[in-house]
Design a protein around this nucleic acid. Structure first.
Length: 392
RNA sequence: GGGGAGAUUCCAGAGCGGCCAAAUGGGCCAGACUGUAAAUCUGGUGGUUCUCACCUUCGGCGGUUCGAAUCCGCCUCUCCCCA
């Protein structure tokens, strides 16, 4: 695969392909790598595999020798990116941004070679701006242009609030491109508008406008946009077991997208997998993803334990031991389940018991009034599908 | 500046004096089924040692009433229309 193909593979938008070819040719001739910008939004500190898509692309480009310029949007984070949001986003304080930033770059470092990555905070230039400079920047765009953005348009139509400062976000992101003399900016497909604003600003400032490339966004486990706050995300911080399990929970029909976006498997191999047994394909996807972050061994172990627990319905091997402080006499099971932390409330425990979701030593208990005292030997408690404890 | 609409349980969205812990859908949880924590179907989905009862919840604070998410006043926030 040549450089152009690496840029292009799996992209959604590529504005404009001929310009990218030209720049690559020039760069090669001059022996100078391209400057590729990626903006990180430190407003959400936990990265998930959706964020990994552009990062993996950057990694591949970094391997080809290009310069990755990571922009930490600490100033923009105080605005809140309106992309993909139908709501006004809360403006973050500086302290929040600072703490998020640390975890963010650490996690990005699991994919990128940070030693070879140029990192800038955009406060480097925005903090120096005076109100006059802000006004000048704001004057470079029109309200009509801003309203073209579909999320603003939708929010207008839905009668939802749009903060005036939100119009500044694309301009700020675009100004970053000007400041670092960006050649190519990449981002999720929801970023196209922001990227194009950067391109326009550069041209106004007499720079060649950046090439803009976007990559697919992937949805979370439940089909909604992947987001930690929806609880539907595979986080980079997840264990191999969690990653594998969550991949297995994906709907079958997104597997192709995921393979292409998150693995480096050749298209032919992906097609072969998708043409085969769906469960096998999904397990392979899970191993690829868990393997990238945790190593192939850990991924293989994750698969084994998943098979044991869910396919073969066996208890997992690593069950937490709980030594409970038993009171005198017997305790209602529903209360016990709450006290040992398996159930969030006794009511929830009661419901789960009534629905046959609680097992003691493999025996289903359906009587919500069931009570027990301290057992002679530790008993195996199963609450729902995934929560186990060995209780003594 | 003027006029109108609205804020409901995780989300969306009904309810408009008692039958409301609050319809319905989504999410989530459980069960069945299965190739999986897919899909589909069924049930559940505020808390409290729990079938009674009690407590907390319908933007905030007060008020009317035997009784309020529902009526009144003020406040906060949002949207729309006119200027």
């Amino acid at each position: 695969m040549n450089d152009f193909e690496v840029f292009q593979r799996n992209s959604v938008d590529l504005i404009e392909a001929p310009q990218l070819r030209q720049r690559l040719d020039k760069a090669r001739a001059a022996g100078k790598p391209l400057r590729i910008k990626f903006g990180m939004d430190p407003s959400s500190p936990d990265l998930h595999v959706g964020h990994a898509i552009p990062l993996l692309k950057l990694r591949a480009l970094q391997e080809l020798g290009h310069t990755i310029v990571l922009i930490v949007g600490d100033s923009t984070a105080m605005v809140g990116d309106p992309s993909g949001r139908n709501k006004l986003r809360p403006q973050l304080t500086r302290e929040e941004v600072e703490t998020n930033l640390v975890t963010y770059t650490t996690q990005a470092g699991r994919i990128l070679d940070m030693a070879r990555t140029e990192v800038h905070r955009n406060s480097e230039w925005f903090d120096a701006m005076r109100f006059e400079d802000v006004l000048r920047l704001a004057g470079k765009a029109t309200v009509a242009r801003m309203l073209e953005r579909d999320t603003f348009e939708k929010r207008m139509a839905a009668g939802e609030p749009i903060g005036v400062h939100e119009f500044l976000y694309p301009l700020m992101q675009g100004w970053d491109s000007v400041m670092i003399r960006c050649d190519v900016e990449i981002g999720g497909s929801d970023q196209l508008f922001n990227l194009l604003v950067g391109r326009e600003l550069q041209e106004r400032e007499g720079q060649p406008g950046q090439v803009c490339i976007t990559f697919p966004l992937i949805n979370g486990l439940d089909g909604r946009k992947m987001s930690k706050s929806y609880g539907n995300a595979i986080l980079l911080e997840d264990s191999a077991e969690q990653m594998f399990g969550k991949v297995m929970a994906l709907p079958d029909d997104v597997m192709g997208t995921w393979f292409r976006a998150l693995t480096r498997l050749a298209d032919a191999e992906i097609d072969a997998l998708l043409g085969g047994h769906p469960r096998e394909a999904k397990a392979r996807l899970g191993q690829e993803i868990a393997g990238f972050f945790h190593g192939a061994d850990a991924a293989a172990r994750a698969r084994e334990s998943f098979d044991r627990q869910f396919r073969d319905k066996q208890a997992p091997t690593d069950i937490p031991e709980i030594a409970h402080a038993w009171p005198e006499g017997s305790v209602p099971l529903m209360v016990l389940l709450r006290d040992i932390g398996l159930a969030p409330s006794s009511g929830e425990a009661k419901r789960t018991i009534e629905q046959g979701g609680v097992k003691l030593d493999g025996q289903v208990v359906t009587d919500p009034k069931f009570a027990l005292g301290k057992p002679a030997a530790p008993i195996l408690v199963q609450f729902g599908k995934r929560k186990y404890a060995r209780l003594s």
